[in-house]
Design a protein around this nucleic acid. Structure first.
Length: 370
DNA sequence: AAGCCGGGGCC
DNA sequence: GGCCCAGGCTT
C-alpha cells in the first residue's frame, strides 16, 4: 500500500484550498450557511442524490418548514408528499424522527458534539462529519463519493472503496489531508473539486491544477480509479395494480372514490401509497376473465367482466430492481367488505398523498380522464 | 460483510 | 444497459 509522505499530503491540501479560493465557482443556497438545521436538511436531501436534483427539494422544505420544530410538528403524510419523487424514502422517515428527538430531547437546539450528531437516526459518518465541520467548524473529514474518487486518483490508491480495508485506508488519508485550521472550507473544496473537475466521467484533467502531482494522471489510471469489487445484482419484479373504483355514493358526494393503501413496511416505497397490489413471480398473463376471478376470490364479491378495463403497462428501472407494472381499472358497485373503509379516496384526496413515480403517472392519467 | 433502499443523468 | 450521485440502515 502506497504510504504518502507528509510533503505530498501538504501539497495536496494547499493546492486544493488554493483552487477553492481562486477557481471554485460552484454556488449552492446552503453554502456559508451556519444554521445546523439547514445544514442537516441539505445533507440528508443530498445523500446519494445529485445537487441539481436535490436543490428544489431543499428550497421547498425550507419554505414549508423554516424551523426544525415545524418539521417535528408537521403531518407526516404531508412531509412525505413534499419528499415525493426524491427517492430513498427512509431518509424522510428518519428526518421526521430526528426532528422530533431534537425538538423534544434537545429543546430544539441541534447538538454540537460529533458523537451526539452521529447517534441521530439517518446520520452516518459522512453526514456527522459534514454537520460538525460546516455548522460548527470542527476538524472532521467528510468521506463521500467525491472524496473517494479524488483521493484514489491523486494518490493512486487501487484498494476497492467498497471493502472494509478500503474504507479504513481512505478514512485515514482523508483525516491526514484535512485542513485542521479550516475544515469547513477544505471539506467544501474537495467535494466541489470532485463534482466539477475530478468528475467520474470526462474529468477535466487538462486544466486541473493538480495534474502534475496526480498519480492517476501520471500513470494513465484516471479512468480506472477508484476501484470497486462488488457488482450489484438486480431483481425483476412483476406487480399488478388493481385500480378499484367506486361511483359517487349519492348526489351530495359527486366524487368517484379509489382504493389506496400504504405500502407495507420492509419493502420498497415504504410510507408511500399504492393501489390494490397483486405480485407475481413472473410476467403475468392475465385475461379479463382471470382478473375477474382473482378479484372475486380475493375480495369476496361478484362483478361483471365489462367493468374491468386493461390499462397500458409500464416499468421502472431502479438501482436494485426493475419493476414491471400491470394495471387494471375495476368499476365496483359497492365497497368490498374485506377492504378497510378509510382507504377510499377521491382524486383530489389522492393528489395530497405521496406515490411512487411508477404509479404517479397513472394517477395523472386518471385525473385527465375524469 | 452483504443486501437493500429511488430516481435521474450520463455514457 | 451500466455506473454514479454530499450514504445509511438492517440483517
Amino acid at each position: 500500500m502506497p504510504t504518502s509522505n507528509a510533503k505530498v499530503i501538504a501539497l495536496f491540501t494547499s493546492r486544493l484550498l488554493q483552487w477553492h479560493r481562486e477557481l471554485n465557482r460552484r454556488q449552492m443556497p446552503w453554502k456559508g450557511e451556519k444554521d445546523p438545521y439547514k445544514i442537516w436538511l441539505s445533507e440528508i436531501i443530498l445523500q446519494q442524490t445529485r445537487v441539481e436534483q436535490g436543490l428544489a427539494y431543499y428550497e421547498k422544505f425550507i419554505l414549508h418548514y423554516p424551523r426544525i420544530q415545524d418539521l417535528a410538528a408537521a403531518d407526516p403524510d404531508q412531509v412525505f408528499k413534499d419528499w415525493e419523487g426524491l427517492g430513498y424514502y427512509s431518509r424522510c422517515k428518519n428526518l421526521l424522527h430526528t426532528a422530533k428527538v431534537i425538538s423534544q430531547d434537545y429543546q430544539g437546539i441541534f447538538p454540537s458534539q460529533y458523537e451526539q450528531i452521529l447517534a441521530l437516526k439517518g446520520i452516518g459518518p459522512y453526514t456527522a462529519a459534514a454537520i460538525s465541520a460546516f455548522a460548527f467548524n470542527q476538524p472532521y473529514a467528510v468521506l463521500d463519493g467525491n472524496v473517494f474518487r479524488v483521493l484514489a486518483r491523486f494518490f493512486g490508491i487501487d484498494t476497492p472503496i467498497d471493502s472494509a480495508n478500503g474504507k479504513l485506508q481512505f478514512q485515514g488519508l482523508a483525516e491526514k489531508t484535512l485542513s485542521k485550521t479550516e475544515p469547513a472550507a477544505y471539506n467544501q473544496a474537495i467535494m466541489d473539486f470532485g463534482a466539477t473537475v475530478c468528475k467520474p466521467a470526462q474529468p477535466l484533467c487538462g486544466s486541473c491544477v493538480m495534474q502534475d502531482s496526480c498519480v492517476a494522471k501520471r500513470t494513465a489510471r484516471v479512468m480506472t480509479l477508484p476501484k470497486k469489487e462488488k457488482t450489484l445484482q438486480k431483481k425483476t419484479r412483476h406487480i399488478t395494480w388493481l385500480i378499484l373504483e367506486l361511483p359517487a355514493q349519492n348526489k351530495n358526494s359527486a366524487n368517484t372514490l379509489f382504493y389506496v393503501q400504504k405500502r407495507p413496511a420492509g419493502d420498497i416505497w415504504e410510507n408511500l401509497h399504492e393501489f390494490y397490489p397483486v405480485e407475481s413471480p413472473a410476467s403475468p398473463d392475465w385475461t379479463i376473465d382471470s382478473i375477474q376471478e382473482l378479484i372475486e376470490n380475493q375480495l369476496d364479491i361478484k362483478l361483471s367482466s365489462k367493468d374491468i378495463q386493461r390499462l397500458p403497462c409500464s416499468a421502472q428501472q431502479l438501482t436494485h430492481q426493475k419493476i414491471h407494472g400491470y394495471f387494471y381499472r375495476v368499476k365496483l358497485t359497492k365497497k368490498p367488505p374485506l377492504l378497510a373503509s378509510h382507504n377510499w379516496h377521491s382524486l383530489q384526496q389522492m393528489d395530497q398523498l405521496a406515490f411512487p413515480k411508477l404509479l404517479k403517472i397513472l394517477q395523472t392519467n386518471l385525473l385527465e380522464k375524469q
